[in-house]
Design a protein around this nucleic acid. Structure first.
Lengths: 217, 217, 217, 217
DNA sequence: GATGAATGAGCATTCATTCAT
DNA sequence: TATGAATGAATGCTCATTCAT
């Protein structure tokens, strides 16, 4: 049971369900790639056209402006792709019964670390756009809060009820999981030197979070 | 004795020690402001000229290209301004003797949180540029590693020697301090809703880090 | 028995006698409307298609170019529609016997004034195109000379033979009728303020032309 | 005492009093020429640049848009050039004493006919734009009413007081003078065949207007 | 050094026209 | 015949950069 975890594949799938033509989908996928690689402002219509193998006219024949292409990509991401991926994630059904908190933590941290690394391109766009476009940063905030926190909440609550972890709000706990994960992944993404392997990163994150979160009796 | 640590003021001071003319310094300061406010790509020579109160020709009379202006700003920042600020920070001489680790933690976390908030603009440029410009992200990485870690290292080492905190590398500890701090500051910077005040943020960060770092005997 | 002399209706009727398909006729009628409303240059193929309820391809499936559509419309107008309208006008059979010259004048001036007002749109195209397209202005000149003058000539000749009006060429007389009529209608068409009603305009025009044309014994 | 009557020369003079550079003035003069010759929409930035002997950038360096260039030209015309010419015209001091009405009429009709013919280009733009741009047609209307009627009014009033011409409003009288003049000039401007010389035209117009306007006792 | 008019390559975008279905 | 996605040349406009003064 191979679960597709690449946002690009997921995005391509999502587009297949749209009424967009093959070439239009190519435009979106190529734009996504270029926006991520060289930034929105440095991506020219002619580059998109070349990358997508279409004419320049086609680039604007559906989404009327470059801004429109970006919005289409990001809104699809925020409204469909990411929630879909979250849904898949939820189905993995981590439970508080089967495992200790550390094991649970290890599984979701590794899960998310791999996910972020596999989707560097998209994460890059979303984060870098957040610095410029307030609407994006707000929407991204919402997605994180509502789509990432909710599936983990039941399990966290179970751990909390059993007195195994601190009674912090789930939002706070997720914030720390995310913050520590990003503190390892972002440098890997942005810098040339990958100092750390993913396994080592997971170990360190889980160790830290365990100390921070696990209630000592 | 409140020391305002504005990177912009610090930058202006640093420029005064250069051999640049007043107008050239104005160009750099105005460019910094505009790059931060509307982004590098959206900043035009004419905007810089207007903001600096000089002619368009002057904008390019010393630093031949726009890219050159950015490089000049960032290199001065990374090579002089930030190290200077770090030096100031070091002089505050937090010691392991005087205080418990939590108190020490609280003081530096609050210190950095305030610093980041006061220099939102510059932090924004550095971070957002890091997503596009590899040179910047590498240099930023270096600055953080070498200039932030070094001044704290002696104190951390003292706490470690006393067995008060875990024997993790200083780099790792600083990574966590930074990651958690940013996890509170960035949302405040980017989103419309400021969910949390700085005091509450400091409390939560210190609480978490204390649990994570403090060695329980 | 009020006969509405809409050039548009007349054009639609004329097209029905052509071998063009319904959709092609729709294209021509919609083009006419748009050319008149927003000008030839500002009328896009997509606008015509939308207005006509056909696809963009259909717009060019018969008349290969946009220029071709305009030519088709204008030539039909100049060769068929306007002569037809003139013929209708002739049938009204104004005669020199039944009435004084002033009454005759009043009837045709009112007739033409109403006609121009009812067909503002088409008149606008023809006139404004004349400023750019030499072929149009020549053709329009011919139509006016040959098709407007001819039906009135017999009556004018009768008045002249009876010594009731000056012995000027019919071309000259028609020129004055047209010039004065347009001097009232065009400002009404182009300016916001309609200074004058049609009745008052007719009175003034007839008064002036009577003084100018009627032979005093 | 040669009175400069060409609107183009007058316009060039007016521009010299502006703070525009030589190249900017060239842009305006070339635009004027092209707008008149091939129409606003068919005039491209590259054509203007070539005609003016400047780069394409220069075309937009002062008046930011093509529309802006047109507005600049037309407003200068309507607000400065035409009123200036009118002022010159007024100085010619036609009087009711020295001459019969026909002689007076002949002098101003010839005057205006020559003027219109010499400035075909500008008249063409103003008239053809009036069909599209409501603001222009209104402004043109105002100019005619206030700037053409006023200088002639005193003389017309003198003639009226002496009972030599009909007691029509000056506006009405000027309307007829203009309408008949245009009825001869426009066909000459727009059509290839110049049927009539200017002298013959003047004769016919004056003859008609005399009959229409001169009071018979 | 400073100026700012001028440059021209480059960009996003439009739109008449084509053509496979 | 009709369609409408695709084309690509052309357009208005921008802007980093130059250079004569």
């Amino acid at each position: 049971m191979l679960v597709i975890e690449s946002l690009e594949q997921k995005y391509a799938q999502t587009l297949e369900n749209s009424n967009l033509s093959l070439k239009q989908r190519q435009v979106l996928l190529s734009s996504l790639k270029l926006f991520a690689e060289i930034g929105f402002e440095n991506t020219t219509a002619s580059l998109i056209a070349k990358e997508a193998g279409v004419s320049e006219g086609t680039v604007f024949s559906y989404f009327k402006t470059k801004e429109g292409i970006l919005e289409a990509i990001l809104s699809t991401f925020l409204e469909q792709v990411i929630p879909d991926v979250i849904a898949d994630f939820s189905k993995k059904k981590f439970t508080a019964n089967q495992e200790t908190f550390s094991v649970f933590l290890r599984s979701i941290v590794r899960d998310r670390l791999v996910f972020i690394q596999e989707n560097q391109m998209q994460v890059k766009i979303l984060l870098s756009r957040s610095f410029i476009d307030n609407a994006i940063s707000n929407q991204l905030g919402n997605v994180i809060v509502h789509s990432i926190i909710s599936p983990i909440s039941p399990i966290l609550n179970q751990f909390k009820e059993k007195g195994l972890i601190r009674n912090w709000t789930n939002e706070r706990i997720v914030r720390y999981i995310l913050a520590l994960s990003l503190s390892y992944v972002l440098p890997m993404m942005l810098n040339d030197n990958e100092e750390l392997g993913i396994d080592e990163a997971v170990n360190e994150i889980v160790e830290c979070l365990s100390f921070a979160l696990v209630e000592v009796e």
